[in-house]
Amino acid sequence: MVPEAYYTGLSAVLFAIGVVGVLVRRNPLVIFMSIELMLNAANLALVAFGSGLATAEAQVLVFFVMTVAAAEVAVGLAIIVAIFRLRRRLSVDDLSLMRW
């Protein structure tokens, strides 16, 4: 058996890589994919904890996270496409309209 700490460690590494991706990249699509990476890392930690506690509730929770992620991706990509139609450029540095 693989110790539970290995899974949480891997999950932490993947989450950190996702955070770095959001911070360093300028293409909104890549930023979005990094967010998916973070969601996946959190899911992995959840399933590992649920497996450690021998309960299926964690898997149900992860299932709901997946559903919400699917809805989020659809809406987010629609927003990105709408912005691209308006601006003709794809860089988050241009999108400072709502900045204080």
Partner: peptide
Amino acid sequence: LLGAEFLALAQVIIYAGAIMVLF
């Protein structure tokens, strides 16, 4: 590996299938 067969299938179908096609 963690024994979550349902989630493994859902992961492949929803994430790798549907969401990535969208991306």
